[in-house]
Design a protein around this nucleic acid. Structure first.
Lengths: 194, 194
DNA sequence: GTTGTGAGTGACCGTACACTCACTCATTGG
DNA sequence: CCAATGAGTGAGTGTACGGTCACTCACAAC
């Protein structure tokens, strides 16, 4: 596809991006490395030259997700009209909701949580939650309680999206979903590779 | 081991219990059916006589989890000293925290969420969240907002336990965990089979 | 031109797992 | 005694996947 040659570091970036998409789709165990390779338009063997193990690849992808999320919170905070703690936190939430519209970042977190029996993954997730929480806290200056609530509703949002509760037409579902910023699933056009 | 003969329906019950333990440990894809069989002290082949597919087995286990959770909420509500909506909801939360002390019920939910790309599992999870939400709502009589918060903090609790955040000794972690009822991990004694 | 190097791959290996099948054994009923 | 039925299993089968290895190819340096 690209006529310009890529150094292996560039390729690594490509693979990380592809890994996020692939792992988000079917989770750590459910995604063969070959699926990541295919998504990156690269051979499976080469993926293993760029990353020593599948675990390492997943961790790299997860870490990248967290970076993207923190960057998004930064943008949200910067764009907040109301620069009070609450205003900033709200703006962050709104920006976050927009980021996860395509679900990949969200599903990566869910899948990571489920893969926590693997030490390096749990550690990466811990660190990630740490980054996010610390940033939300220090940047907004909000109370611990407010930050805790911020995170809690974020988790609820994950559940809603994963289980597809926003498509459920029942009072209990409406109540659960109410007031939570909602991404309408962006249509992802899968590119056909030869 | 048992000298009394068991009808196949009894066996099915045993297998469901075993499945909860096994699946909770390593998730849907990470748990071979043979692990469930071993936990139930039964041959793998017989598991497939009792449940048509691994999917069906997982769904049965998940459904059982939800039943156990709702029963727990019932007990919590009944035991509430303060029978106001908030009092009942709090009591439910406390009882729930106690139930998930051994983590199996909690991990099953996490793993189910991650396995939501399988239709029957997502459906079962949806129904389960529905049961729980509806029960919490009607039994407590609390507002939609309060029920929503109840669920949100429940989800945060799942994250804390899964990622082991309660073992993290940093301010951000303390802030996240603060005030959330906590199970100290019950020691499970694995029984040795011959 | 030949020697070195890094990008990239096809073909393979060992293992694990979902699911099947032919079978054994015990109990029941006549 | 024999037939039928249901509990329960050992030994497979086909396939998929993580990881490896020997290899090719393009290009640069001399």
């Amino acid at each position: 596809m690209s006529s310009t040659l890529s150094t292996s570091d560039l390729r690594r970036e490509t693979v990380i991006t592809a890994a996020i998409t692939a792992f988000a789709r079917s989770g750590y165990l459910g995604t063969p490395t070959s699926a990541v390779a295919e998504e990156a338009d690269i051979s499976t063997a080469y993926v293993f030259k760029l990353f020593p193990t599948k675990e390492a690849l997943f961790v790299a992808a997860l870490t990248r997700c967290i970076e993207l999320i923190v960057q998004t919170l930064e943008r949200g905070a910067a764009a907040a009209k109301d620069q009070t703690p609450k205003g900033i936190l709200d703006a962050m939430g709104e920006q976050y909701a927009e980021l996860i519209a395509d679900r990949d970042l969200l599903m990566m977190q869910v899948h990571a949580q489920s893969a926590c029996d693997i030490d390096v993954i749990r550690q990466a997730l811990r660190d990630g939650i740490g980054s996010i929480t610390r940033y939300a806290s220090t940047r907004s200056g909000a109370s611990d309680d407010a930050v805790q609530a911020f995170m809690a509703y974020g988790q609820l949002c994950h559940l809603i999206v994963t289980a597809g509760l926003d498509a459920v037409d029942a009072p209990w579902a409406k109540g659960l979903v109410a007031g939570i910023r909602h991404p309408q699933p962006t249509k992802k056009s899968k590119k056909k590779a030869s």
